[in-house]
């Protein structure tokens, strides 16, 4: 059995993958596309928090919210200027896929020019550890876990209790009927892109003090959340959450057991899961 610290590190990673995967699936369920540049919104969110805290002296929790708002708005701009123009009649999936992939390098390049390529360390915003006897957890990591719980509960309430949320679910399940009853599908697309990117940004922001901040930090979380989505079943929000938890924990535990070989083992495991359930754990069985 790996020590508790390994599980906690895994859980912290789970939180990030879960939040990222949730946003990607939400966008996919409405727009029908994978936003390949999701990881760069994570990175930009971390930079917003970094500069808000270190340069402007904004309190950490407030700077998280600010990064969610700014990067969420940026996601809406991307939806309006890029994604909306490349979807719809006459366009295949390839155009919008290529465009969002190109944005990966655009955002990374832009961040590199603006903020420099060197990794920036951020002082711990929540110093101290919680002593649990045989092991201890830093408050910073506890913050990540609590933050994720709050986000997930908030998302549950928004999707199930509010009119906007019901419009989002209705559009995901039956877009034609939703528009017949007055839901503006273009507007819903904009909203979910804003929510998805805002979640990614806040996930990046909360990890700022745990890791370091650099223009390429979005790549690994992006790949991992993609894997989480594939394991959980593309299109299922529950799947994104469970996939994220499984992946974060496994990644940490496997790395502890066999270090360098860990990614190989992880991908092997994903392949095995997909061999047994090609639609993912929570995906609908193909008709």
């Amino acid at each position: 059995m790996p020590p508790a610290g390994i599980w906690i590190d895994g859980l912290v990673q789970s939180c990030i993958y879960m939040t990222m995967a949730f946003g990607m699936v939400l966008v996919f369920s409405i727009l029908g596309i994978l936003n390949w540049t999701h990881g760069q919104f994570y990175m930009l969110g971390a930079f917003v928090v970094y500069y808000a805290v270190t340069a402007a002296g904004v309190p950490f929790p407030l700077s998280l919210l600010i990064s969610g708002v700014i990067v969420g708005a940026l996601g809406m701009v991307v939806e309006k200027l890029v994604i909306e123009r490349l979807t719809g009649p006459g366009y295949g999936l390839l155009a919008v896929t290529a465009a969002t992939m190109a944005l990966i390098f655009f955002f990374e390049g832009a961040a590199g020019m603006a903020f420099g390529l060197m990794a920036k360390g951020m002082a711990t915003t929540l110093p101290g550890v919680l002593d649990m006897g045989s092991f201890s957890i830093s408050y910073q990591k506890i913050a990540v876990i609590i933050f994720t719980l709050v986000i997930m509960v908030a998302m549950y309430i928004v999707l199930n209790r509010t009119k906007v949320g019901k419009a989002i679910r209705a559009t995901a399940q039956q877009p034609d009927a939703a528009s017949l009853y007055g839901v503006n599908v273009g507007w819903v697309s904009l909203i979910v892109m804003g929510i998805g990117c805002s979640l990614a940004a806040m996930a990046g922001g909360i990890m700022g003090p745990v890791q370091s901040v650099d223009p390429f930090m979005g790549r690994i979380p992006m790949i991992m959340s993609l894997l989480a989505i594939v394991i959980g079943g593309l299109g299922s929000l529950t799947g994104a959450i469970v996939g994220g938890i499984i992946l974060g924990l496994l990644n940490s535990v496997i790395a502890y057991k066999i270090s360098y070989f860990s990614e190989v083992a992880l991908f092997l495991l994903v392949i095995v899961i997909l061999l047994i359930r090609p639609q993912g754990l929570f995906g609908a069985a193909p008709k």
């Binding site: 019901k166 679910r169 007055g182």
Partner: peptide, 18 residues
């Protein structure tokens, strides 16, 4: 074209969306 995963009540609410 019902909203299959939404409750009957929610389907009715969506009818009155506007």
């Amino acid at each position: 074209k019902l909203f299959p995963l939404m409750s009957v009540m929610e389907n009715l609410e969506m009818g009155a969306y506007l």
